[in-house]
Amino acid sequence: MFGLANPQRFMAFTRPLVPLLWAAAGVLLALGAWFSFTAPEDYQQGDTVRIMFVHVPAATLGLGAYAALGVSSFFALVFRHALADAAARAAALPGAAFTLLALITGSLWGKPMWGTWWVWDARLTSVFILFLFYLGYMALRAAIDDEARAARSAAVLGLVGLINLPIVRFSVDWWNTLHQRASLIRADGPSIDGAFLPALLTMMAAYGALFLALWITGIRTEVDRRRVVAARARAAAGA
């Protein structure tokens, strides 16, 4: 992992990787869609179970992206890797988008099942709070003009966010048990009917590959952008 911290080596290493990732994401997504619509209807939820195939991967990758953001922030803060900040920055938007998709598909699932667009289920509430973490992170980056300083402050917030996530998750679960309402969206628990596994796992892999493709492409773009901006600034300084 440390070898990749050097931008040049990272760019060389990922150059062949990126097209592969995009191709894998595309194929897996098509395959996953195919499985999703050939899976049998759930005896209880009928066809709405097909929403699960886009809801669960989005929620999982929303959390995974924040882990990537948090770990990158740790490397940016503690080891001051040049690439780590670009990695944290590149994970933010995709992560927020996945989390937003999880919320949208979650409420589209809740309406037919429980009659309300929003359900205060512990997991859905945590996904919503995770979305707020993303908003806070992106607001901080946007609010500080000096890019280098914004990067360092964002690294602190990214790491603080990562440390606080399990605590927030615990407090929401604890809050949920207070109200004794059984968790409404049980579908992605162990009780998944075997017939749905191929669709769910393929979609999960598809979303995972897509996130990696978005993330690595984002980092490469950031490396190029910084080189060009620095070159222009040097040229301007000489003028």
């Binding site: 000096d146 890019e147 280098a148 910084r226 620095a230 040097r234």
Partner: peptide, 8 residues
């Protein structure tokens, strides 16, 4: 060597 942002 000191850089401000990416400008050295």
């Amino acid at each position: 060597g000191i850089a401000r942002g990416d400008r050295s």
